[in-house]
Design a protein around this nucleic acid. Structure first.
Length: 128
RNA sequence: GAACUGAACCGGACGGUCGCGCGGUAUCACGCCGAAAGGUAUUACCGUGAGGAAAGUCCGUGCUUCGCAGGGCAGGAUAACUGAUAACGUCAGCCGAGGGUGACCUUAGGGAAAGUGCAACAGAAAAUUACCGCCAUUUAUGGUAAGGAUGAAAACGCGAGGUAAGAGCUCACGACACGCCACGGUAACGUGGGGUGGGUGUAAACCCUAUCCGAAGCAACACCGUAUACGAGAUUUUAUUUGCCCGAUAAGGCUUCGCCGUCUCGUGGGUGGCACGCAUUAUUGCGGAGCGUUCUGGCGACAGGACGCAAAGAUAGAUGACCGUCUAUUACAGAACACGGCUUACAGGUUCAGUUCACAU
RNA sequence: CUGCCCGUGGCACAGCCGGAUAGCGCGUCAGACUCCGACUCUGAAGGUCGAAGGUUCGAAUCCUUUCGGGCAGG
C-alpha cells in the first residue's frame, strides 16, 4: 500500500492544533479526520479511502543522513504496522520524530506505533 | 627493532526474507476497454540506483538569458621563474628565504631613492636625533657622535690611521644593497672577480607597477496554459444554476453495450533543461575538458594513440529494515544542472618509497 | 542559489582605520547601614575577546581558513 504524502503546510498546522495526539518515547502521533478524503477517493482509480502520511523530522536531530534514516525507519515501522493491522482509512497521520528516534530500530517504532494506534482507536479489526 | 617522513588506495563483505525510485520487457498466459492498432491499471521479471569528501560554497569553467562600436575611470582579484591546463587564486618542476641530524616540511615571495600616513610606553632623539658626555673658544655659541641609559627597532662590525675632540673621514678584512664582467642555467637565480654606496620598519596602512575580470544565475532559461495534464461523471431518464419548482444553458459525430469530441466537477500548474549529446537508412557514424585498462613521450603536472564501457536523476525528495556469519550499528557523512580544483570532517585498515638511531653480519 | 551581518564576565552591550590595566549597566559575593529585610553606600571576584594559523616589535582590532547564530532577495 503506497502512501500519499501530505505536502501542505496548513494541514500540518491543523493536525498539530486539532488532531488527536499520542506520545511515545520516540514518536509523537497526530491523527485527524481527512476532510478531503472523499475527493481523494474519487480521484483514486482504486476507489478506496486512503490515509495521507506526513513525517516531521526536525533539524535538531542531525544532518541530512540522520534525518533520512529516521524517516526511513518511521516508514518501515508504519509499513510493518499496516501489515499486521487494518487501520481506519481517510485520516491524516503525522509522525513527529523525537530525539531518541535516531538510535531506535524499526521494531521499537512498530511497537510504539501499534500502541499509539490502539489508544487512538484506529484499528478496525485484527488481521490475524 | 624503535622513532619518524612522503605518496597512493579501501571506506564494509556475503547469504536469506520484506520494501522503495528510475528505465526496459510482458512474445505465450493473466485484469479492464477496443474489431484492430493500441490505451490503462496492477503485478511479475530483468537491469540500475549517493561520496571521498556528495559538505563548506572559497576559486575557475561549461551552459542559459540579458547587455555589448571602441576607449577610459571606478571596483575587485592575483604577485619570484619556467611550464601544465578549457581555465584558475589550482597543479608540477625549479629558485630564494625559514625550520629539521635527516627523509622532508613551511612560504600572499613585486615596489619603502614616486608620494602620504603610522611607530604606544620608555628614551635626548623613532628619521636629517643630541640629554649626559668629549673638544674649542669661552660661559654662550659652535664642532662631534667614541662611550652611557631606553626600546622590538638608535644610523654596518672590528682593527689601524687620522684629529682640538671625533666621525666610512681614509684604509685593510668582513656583512649588506645596487650596477658591471666571466662561467653555468630557457629563466628566476647561483658561483667567482672587480666597482660603487651608506636616507629604520611597516604596503595582510593608503598607495605605485604588471596581468586579468561585462552582469546575473537551473527558482537561469525554453515550451504548453485557464482549459492544459491526469482522474471521475454526464452526453435519451443527465449535469450545472437554485432553499424548492418552473425556466434557461450544453454539441454532436462515428465503424454505436463503445470511441472521439463536448460539458461539468475534482486535484495540481505541467513538461523539457536532467543524466551522455547530435545525426541517422535503426545499424552505425561523429562529437564531447567522461570512466577504466594499456602503450608512447616527459623529472613531473600532463599530452597523444589503441581497446573497452558509458547505467542515479529524485521533486516533501528514492539506496532501507530485520536475521545470520565474518573482531562488524560501530568514522565523517546524503546527489538536486554538470565538471576541474581548494578547504574542512573522518573509525578502522592496506600498499609502496624513504630517513635517523640501536643491534647483528 | 546569491548577498550581508553578528559572536567580548552569568545577561544585554561599548571598544574594532593596531599600542599593552579590555570598559559600562544589571546580576553574584563580602562588608557597612537596620531589631530584621528592602533601598542605599563601600569593596571584591568573575574574560582562552567563538576557534586555528599568519602579518607586525605588538592583534579583541588587519588578512586567510574554519565553527556557530541571524537577516534579506529570487
Amino acid at each position: 500500500m503506497k502512501h500519499i504524502a501530505i505536502k501542505e503546510n496548513h494541514l500540518y498546522s491543523k493536525a498539530y492544533a486539532k488532531g488527536q495526539k499520542f506520545v511515545t518515547k520516540n514518536v509523537v502521533v497526530y491523527i485527524l479526520k481527512d476532510l478531503r478524503s472523499e475527493k481523494l477517493m474519487i480521484a483514486n482509480p482504486m476507489k478506496e479511502y486512503v490515509n495521507r502520511i506526513g513525517l516531521t523530522v526536525s533539524k535538531k536531530l542531525g544532518g541530512a543522513v540522520v534525518r533520512n534514516r529516521v524517516k526511513r525507519i518511521l516508514r518501515e515501522g508504519l509499513r510493518q504496522t499496516e501489515k499486521d493491522f487494518n487501520l481506519k482509512k481517510g485520516y491524516l497521520i503525522v509522525l513527529v520524530a523525537r530525539s531518541g528516534a535516531t538510535d531506535a530500530g524499526s521494531d521499537q517504532i512498530k511497537r510504539e506505533l501499534t500502541r499509539a494506534f490502539h489508544s487512538l482507536n484506529m484499528i478496525e479489526n485484527n488481521k490475524q
